[in-house]
Simulated assay, not measured.
Amino acid sequence: MDLLDFSDCKLYFEDPLPAAAEALIAEASREYGSPGAELALLRAHLLAPDNLTVLVGIYRYYFYQHRLEDALQVAELAMQLSGRQLGLPADWALLDERRLAAAAAASFGLLRFYLLALKAASVVLLRLGRIADSRPRLIKLAGLDSRDQLGAAKLLEVVDEFRSPDASTASDEPAFNLAIA
């Protein structure tokens, strides 16, 4: 399956958004960096709690404000919502090629969103220094994406390259500080 082929799929941001929620997202954009931006995003979420565009806005706000625990919660919520729509198990570890194929048949664009949300959660976990929590997610993604179109295998390679040699026998504390991802 070509995870970069968007030619025949609906993307998350094409879902209709209530006008009031759209106005709140625009307000958040104008007020970025001020407390009013977060409030506008959270109000948009109250109006459209299942809208992935709103969740992406909240995730980006938290990520770029370095509120990584909050960003992680939003990435996981995005996975729950999109996974539920795709009929995927609540536990990402249960993903396999059969389930992926069924989800792709239902909505390829939404499946790609789900996989990118899983990668986003992995990156946030890396930024938090929680390597032991991130690695299994990256391994799962790499196993499902044989051509590494989402970049999880390459990211895993970099993580493993910088891990200390005794990291697997001691605690799984990082031997590096991931500054950007």
Results as ranks from 00 to 15, higher is better:
residue 39 L to W: 01
residue 48 A to Q: 05
residue 167 A to T: 04
residue 65 Q to V: 06
residue 143 G to L: 12
residue 7 S to V: 06
residue 2 D to K: 08
residue 161 E to G: 05
residue 165 P to Y: 13
residue 40 A to E: 02
residue 145 D to R: 04
residue 57 G to R: 03
residue 42 L to M: 15
residue 166 D to Y: 10
residue 45 H to N: 10
residue 94 L to S: 10
residue 93 A to N: 09
residue 45 H to P: 00
residue 139 I to Q: 14
residue 104 A to I: 03
residue 115 L to C: 07
residue 154 K to L: 11
residue 100 L to T: 04
residue 137 R to T: 04
residue 48 A to H: 10
residue 106 A to N: 07
residue 4 L to G: 09
residue 43 R to L: 11
residue 87 G to T: 09
residue 164 S to D: 06
residue 70 D to G: 04
residue 59 Y to T: 08
residue 105 A to C: 03
residue 58 I to V: 15
residue 46 L to A: 12
residue 9 C to W: 08
residue 152 A to Y: 06
residue 144 L to C: 07
residue 116 L to D: 10
residue 63 F to R: 08
residue 37 A to N: 02
residue 56 V to A: 07
residue 10 K to I: 14
residue 126 L to T: 03
residue 110 L to M: 12
residue 144 L to R: 00
residue 150 L to W: 03
residue 14 E to F: 08
residue 65 Q to G: 05
residue 13 F to E: 08
residue 51 N to E: 09
residue 174 P to R: 10
residue 42 L to H: 12
residue 106 A to H: 13
residue 49 P to F: 11
residue 119 K to D: 06
residue 59 Y to K: 10
residue 166 D to L: 15
residue 28 A to L: 02
residue 69 E to T: 14
residue 22 E to Y: 02
residue 45 H to Y: 13
residue 76 E to H: 07
residue 81 L to V: 13
residue 181 A to T: 14
residue 4 L to Y: 00
residue 137 R to D: 02
residue 92 W to Y: 13
residue 68 L to Y: 15
residue 114 Y to V: 09
residue 120 A to S: 13
residue 73 Q to M: 12
residue 55 L to M: 11
residue 110 L to R: 10
residue 100 L to P: 01
residue 19 A to E: 15
residue 82 S to N: 09
residue 159 V to M: 09
residue 138 L to P: 05
residue 93 A to I: 11
residue 128 L to P: 04
residue 66 H to M: 10
residue 157 E to L: 09
residue 75 A to P: 07
residue 59 Y to D: 07
residue 62 Y to I: 05
residue 90 A to L: 06
residue 3 L to Y: 13
residue 90 A to N: 05
residue 119 K to P: 00
residue 89 P to G: 10
residue 104 A to M: 06
residue 37 A to H: 02
